[in-house]
Amino acid sequence: MSAGRLGKDLLGLEHLSADDIRLILDTAEPFKEISERAIKKVPVLRGKTIVNLFFEPSTRTRVSFEFAEHRLSADTVNVATALSSVSKGETLVDTARNLEAMRIDMVVMRHPSSGAAKFLADRIKSNVINAGDGKHEHPTQGLLDLLTIRDHRPIEGTRVCIVGDVLHSRVARSNIWGLLKLGAEVAVCGPQTLLPMGIEELGVRVFRRIEEAVEWAAVLNVLRLQLERMQGGYVPSVREYYRVFGVTLERLERAPRELLILHPGPMNRGVEIDSRVADGPHSVILSQVTNGVAVRMAVLYLLAGGRPELAESAKGAPER
């Protein structure tokens, strides 16, 4: 285990300071370039062992972490629960302790229960990176969203509206904390059935109509509508959701300014977002994915004790 400026673990953005968040974003900048090289590898985490422990299916986040780990030369193992001892009834704490007994350095965990990352972090010595815990937080997604917005405009003072199923979204919570700390104005928009109780008390504006959100915002972060929400009775149908809350080209054309469009993926085209918007000129959805690798490299580097001012030199000279 090691602990850098960020402490032992990255569990969420709620308890990070604005300076900590800026540190991660600033550290990510030099790491962006590594992924553009022909030989995408630097020896920063050589000899470190990392377990990617995924209790929920994930493609984007898992692959992004794996690339970040490999490009920093860490040794990694992936554990997917369907194939592991967890499916034989092992508890989370036993799984973690067994992994730790193999002398690992870090665990990246995705888990369906809110608080699972903290539960693990409190019980093992290795660094824990939360790759999404239930409906609580998904800090690296929040960070990559911040980095992507920052690539296009200063975060401070920018109006960002998070659209859709905020109630069940860990991405929304990490975004809200990160954006507020960096001085953005934040709003949420969706049917009241999908907005959590007391959200205004966090300092967030609420729009019940997408038209109002589009008029107000400079950035829309469009959340995925999970199809099981229909069974939960939160919204009557996909068709109606798209009609009332869908981020469509027609709605954006009526906006007073050009909006930056983010989406954490995976997208339901024609449900929460119009394909013409997702693939349009103001979409930065694929930049988010690219930035995800850099942000995760920065987080891994800092938690491993890397000094932020050395990030540029740590990555070595670019391969020609």
Binding site: S114, G115, D133, G134, P196, M197
Partner: peptide, 12 residues
């Protein structure tokens, strides 16, 4: 169900 459950991401 309240602000704490919203922050913790737990169903209220």
């Amino acid at each position: 169900e309240g602000l704490v459950s919203t922050r913790l991401g737990l169903k209220g």
